[in-house]
Design a protein around this nucleic acid. Structure first.
Lengths: 155, 155
DNA sequence: GTAAAGTTGACTAAATTACTCGGGTATGAG
DNA sequence: CTCATACCCGAGTAATTTAGTCAACTTTAC
């Protein structure tokens, strides 16, 4: 699972669509104006989002984009995956030059951890985010004891 | 929260230290050999990890690095944060050129989501990962209903 | 003293990100 | 019909990050 500003742009744009759903197609020009993302860059991102079946495009005047599925059925994980090339998990990827045991173990461990992150982001939908009670929902699901000391500046 | 190959390298290296804890300092040369990460790159990463108080360094012959705290008390989030510059959350970061409401809302939503991801990774320690029952633990914590369809190729 | 290790900083190649430009193509409004 | 509006697409590119090299230096065990 890769998380960078690119994924953030994509999620932000999808949230914009979700926030303005039901009012007909949204043009990228509108999204660009509202979210301060360059139009051409949005075009690239939406090309991926369309190929991933996350949005429908309507061409011509009055056209634009809209969510292909309800916001309740699009996860953050899907959006991030759509725009990011996956991280290649290992260097010795199936080449079998992984002697020594330790190496492959570390790779395996990372892979399992990566699975968990993916599962986590799969459980959060665009709707969860715009409803914003997702904070409580996720906290409940996790039974997380919130440790203040852990919360330092991060992006 | 930023997740990239850089974070993966750092976590992998820390897992290597955790796996070989209790046998005295580990040299970066060993880690480099086992995990196939260049020595010089490891030096850069460990410079950050040391400044973040995640590892202790022992100089001179017989020296190396070891975890500053037990693996049960170092979270994945800490390791990732130590080596990554945080994603700047907004473009209009406090500059107040965020008129229109929608803009700031999207930024706010992303910020809250980012919080959740951070919280999630704060709940997973190096020890969880090397014990590998973290998969079950996390699943229990989340009460996640595992949807097969969601699990497609990712990195 | 000397060799083993960490420490630091400057430098660089490759990859990714973020963006521009210049054309297309479909289509609804007039 | 036609034309403006919007998506579509590919080439190119500057900035940034990633990943790594290199060289000099410090500390310390032997």
């Amino acid at each position: 699972m890769k998380l960078s500003t690119k994924g953030r742009y994509a999620v932000t744009a999808m949230l914009d669509l979700a926030l303005h759903a039901g009012k007909g197609p949204i043009t990228l020009a509108e999204v660009s104006g509202r979210q301060h993302i360059s139009l051409s860059y949005l075009e690239q991102l939406f090309s991926r989002l369309r190929k991933a079946n996350l949005v429908d495009s309507i061409r011509g005047p009055g056209g634009g984009y809209e969510l292909k599925r309800p916001a309740t059925q699009i996860s953050i994980a899907e959006v991030v995956l759509a725009v990011n090339e996956p991280i290649t998990a290992t260097r010795c990827n199936g080449k079998g030059d992984c002697q020594g045991g330790d190496v492959c173990l570390s790779h395996q461990l990372w892979s399992e951890l990566s699975d968990q992150i993916y599962q986590f982001l799969s459980g959060i939908t665009l709707d969860h985010v715009i409803q914003r009670d997702f904070v409580q929902q996720v906290a409940e699901r996790q039974n997380v004891r919130f440790r203040e000391e852990d919360v330092i500046a991060f992006g």
